[in-house]
Design a protein around this nucleic acid. Structure first.
Length: 293
DNA sequence: CCGCGGGCCTGAGAGC
DNA sequence: TGCTCTCAGGCCCGCG
């Protein structure tokens, strides 16, 4: 559920607590998230300083003084919380929330900034990994990622080239991180609606045979950028238990035009359509069959 | 290489 | 009220 706008919101929330600060104490409360943590995970962090906190697609990247990068992914249900209380807390006093939540606080960072940062992830689809900064582009998790949709390099020509000759649906193509990185189910649905393109449309139809972009490609790029920018502006979306790092909720879920709106009226001006839900490659797709062609 | 589907994992919510 | 079932969707991997 955390997609690019949520991860970017988390990054902005973590930045003041982490950047320029040292890991005074690290707690790994269980040895595995999605994958086992390295045995020396704690030692490789403690005493190191975070030089910068960046983001690539849905990954957070903390650049460490040791020359390593701490790669973090929220998976489906991961969330960070930042507690500012000035004093360093003893283990066991890290948490002042209810026990149910505490059991899923898997990683705790006590920072020299005075902040305590907790990583909570009930379903453990998220993970942390330490990789050398030198040759970061060789990292398997990052290597095949497509362009950043909010970056300068992402334009209709690039998208059309990536979509050229593809036989799958537009829904599947936009969900593919190799085509464009950072979209998930929600924002793919929202972007396609804004672009008035059907999720069932064959991907290759947004490019000419030579790979040149057409009007649909232009619309799609504009829609992707717009929906991501709007969502970041709103602090991301909070569905179920996803929260920002300060515990507050984002507001973008109130601006969904199709996602989880099955049976409701289409909000496109002048459109009398009703939002439908279908399943594509095992995932729910929400769209308006009237204005999305 | 490509595309599809299974698996991982837990909690919320529906239905009986 | 309480049990069981389904669904949510990030990403990897194996299969054809």
């Amino acid at each position: 559920m955390p997609e690019l706008p949520e991860v970017e919101t988390v990054r902005r929330g973590l930045q003041p607590a982490l950047e320029g600060a040292r890991f005074d104490r690290v707690l790994a409360r269980r040895p595995d998230l999605r994958w086992p943590l390295p045995k020396d995970f704690v030692q490789r962090l403690e005493g190191k300083t975070v030089k910068g906190l960046g983001r690539r697609a849905k990954y957070l990247l903390a650049d460490l003084s040791s020359g390593e990068v701490l790669l973090m992914h929220l998976g489906m249900s991961g969330s960070f919380r930042v507690f500012h209380d000035g004093r360093k807390r003893k283990p066991g006093r890290f948490h002042h929330e209810r026990n149910k939540q505490l059991t899923h606080d898997h990683i705790v960072f006590a920072m020299s900034s005075g902040a305590t940062v907790t990583f909570n992830d009930p379903r453990r689809f998220g993970f942390m990994k330490l990789v050398p900064r030198a040759g970061l582009e060789q990292e398997p998790l990052l290597r095949s990622l497509g362009p950043e949709p909010l970056g300068n390099a992402f334009d209709a020509a690039m998208l059309a080239q990536a979509c050229r000759g593809k036989k799958t649906s537009l829904k599947a193509a936009l969900s593919d991180q190799r085509v464009v990185a950072g979209l998930g189910n929600i924002y793919v649905c929202e972007a396609l609606h804004r672009a008035r393109l059907s999720p069932k449309r064959k991907t290759s139809t947004i490019a000419s045979r030579s790979g040149a972009p057409n009007d649909q490609a232009e619309r799609l790029v504009a829609a992707i950028r717009a929906v991501l920018e709007d969502a970041i502006e709103a602090g991301g979306s909070s569905l179920r238990d996803h929260r920002r790092t300060d515990g507050e909720v984002g507001y973008f879920q109130h601006h969904f035009r199709v996602y989880d709106r099955e049976g409701q009226h289409c909000v496109t001006p002048g459109c009398a359509g009703t939002i439908r839900r279908i399943v594509q490659t095992g995932r729910s797709t929400f769209f308006c069959p009237v204005c999305q062609k």
